[in-house]
Structure formats: structure tokens, C-alpha cells
Design a protein around this nucleic acid. Structure first.
Ligand SMILES: [Mn+2]
Ligand SMILES: [Mn+2]
Ligand SMILES: [Zn+2]
Ligand SMILES: [Zn+2]
Lengths: 144, 144
DNA sequence: AGTCTTATTGCAAACGATTTGCAATTGCAT
DNA sequence: ATGCAATTGCAAATCGTTTGCAATAAGACT
């Protein structure tokens, strides 16, 4: 059992262990990110959080995003143009295709590309710590 | 003849044709970029330009970078963390490996990865307009 | 070379995203 | 309950970049 189930790590436990406090704003933000299908930016997260607890501030959103990023609980993306966008780190690694017309973000993964990246880095004498692959494109016209 | 020679397009001609004026600041900045092996940011370009013509302003650097980008004369990169960096667009397409310790930027190209990107986009019903592939890594320890 | 029109400039001020100082509040171990 | 350090909200600061505006200069036409 539990094969293939993307593990949702217990960050509250990890935070307690590190002496990091579980506060109301943090719980709210963590919940928002957990039940998130998209890649919201700080302002969007702030608005969703405000809807739950009117007292949460934008500063706290930023501070919390930095904290969670440091813990490896979320990923920060800097797609071209806009502000940083976030997503929880629970799932498998993937890269992104951004629809230039709609702004939609589509996730994909290519084991082959990942392998080639490693190979390239190795040949250059490097070890990859992380990478960023973003495709920017337009929907192909349906052939009629 | 002229096979394999990376063509260095005559931007001055192109600019004139578009009613864009060849000013002293623009000539200076264009020259800096042409004789540039690295990926300087606006401030670095500003400093190099100031050394040639003390009167050039940072605003003009930014405005010129935008103009040149629009003409396709340069590429703008947004490596993680820092400000935008630029390079002249004359050469072949390539992607970048950033040394996390030194900040060095190493260029590479993989035809195979480019093909796979196209394939992935096609399968998702998209046509790639441009993309960004950045590897962030550390030099491998020499085995002794 | 002189004149004209208008693109371009430098400057300072505005901008958007993010970070920070600080005093007030809170989590949580005792 | 008590106490202290971690965390917060707020406002102000910061960073990279853009913009309004009056002054300047490119280049087309004498
Ligand atoms: Mn994603
Ligand atoms: Mn390059
Ligand atoms: Zn990847
Ligand atoms: Zn590429």
C-alpha cells in the first residue's frame, strides 16, 4: 500500500522540532497552499488568507513563504514578467509550460530531459543543485 | 561562402530604416555589448558606458536595453536572485549553467533537449515561442 | 552651415515587488 | 499562570526598473 501516493509531509511536526512556532497565520497559509491546484503569487495568497482571517498581513505572507521555501515545503517560481509564484512541494518534480495568451500554467515532466541536463552538467564538471525549465508558448490552431 | 559565420546583423541600418536614431549613448552601449564575453546587468553596462562617456545615464541604459531587446538585438535573462542580465543576440541559441558559488555563467546547447521541448509542447497542443533553461550547480570535487 | 521637427536624453520622482525595524502580541515550555 | 523568545502588523525602506518632463541633439530639408 501507499505506493504512488504523493506523500504529504507533516510540516507541523518538522516545524516544532526546529523550534518554529505554529501560528494562526502559518496554519492558514499552509492550508491554502495544500488545497491549491494553481500557482498563486503572494498577493493572491494574501487575499485568500484574508478571506479566512482578516488580520493576516501581506508581510506575514511574504515571511511565511520564505520560511516554507527554506524548509523545502514550497517551491518559488519566477515566471517571466510577473511576481513570484508558489506551489507546495509535495508532488513529484515537474517543469512548466506557460500559455502566453491566457497565462495558464501547465505542468509537465520529461525524465529524458532531466537525464540530459545531468549529463551536460557532468561533462562541464558540475553537479546540478536545481534547475528551471520554462516553455512559453501559444496554443496550436486546431487543424480543420 | 559565409557558411557557419555567425552573422552580426547591421543594427544601425535596421534602426535607421525604422526611424530610430543612432545616438551617442546607443552607439556606446551597442559597442559594449558587441565586445562582451559575459552577461552584464544594467548597472554594469552603465558603469562600462560611463567610463567611455561620463554623461550617459542609467535610465538611458535601461531604455536602450528595452529598445534593443524589442529589435531582437539582445537577450534578457532573469537568473535567480539578481537583476536582469543581457547579452547580444548575434550567436547561436544556447542555455545557461550558473555556478552557485562563483556566479559564473557557462553556456551550453543540447539539440536533443530542444527537440524534446518541442515534442512535449506539441503533445500538449502548444507551439513554443521561447523558453528558458537554467541549470544551477556546483563544481564537482576533483577525484584525487 | 542654418533651420526645423521630433526622437532622445538626463534628472528626479514614481513604481511594483519584496524586505525590514520596531513595538505590541502570541505561542508554548516551564 | 508566568516568562521569554518568536512572531506579528504596520509603516517605512529597499531594490530594480520605469516614467514625466523640460532640455538637447539627430538627421532631413534647405
Ligand atoms: Mn507546478
Ligand atoms: Mn549567454
Ligand atoms: Zn525539470
Ligand atoms: Zn534552449
Amino acid at each position: 500500500m501507499n505506493q504512488g501516493t504523493p506523500k504529504k509531509p507533516d510540516y507541523e511536526r518538522e516545524m516544532r522540532r526546529a523550534g518554529i512556532r505554529i501560528t494562526r497565520p502559518r496554519r492558514v497559509i499552509l492550508d491554502i497552499l495544500a488545497g491549491c491546484e494553481d500557482h498563486p503569487d503572494a498577493m493572491e495568497i494574501f487575499q485568500r488568507a484574508s478571506a479566512i482571517d482578516k488580520s493576516i498581513s501581506l508581510s506575514t505572507v511574504y515571511r511565511t513563504m520564505k520560511l516554507l521555501e527554506g524548509m523545502g515545503a514550497i517551491h518559488r517560481h519566477a515566471f517571466e514578467g510577473g511576481p513570484a509564484r508558489f506551489e507546495q512541494a509535495s508532488g513529484e518534480h515537474h517543469d512548466h509550460l506557460i500559455d502566453l495568451d491566457t497565462g495558464d500554467v501547465i505542468e509537465f515532466h520529461s525524465r529524458r530531459i532531466e537525464e540530459l541536463q545531468d549529463e551536460i552538467a557532468r561533462e562541464l564538471g558540475y553537479e546540478i543543485v536545481h534547475h528551471r525549465l520554462e516553455l512559453y508558448g501559444r496554443r496550436k490552431k486546431r487543424r480543420g
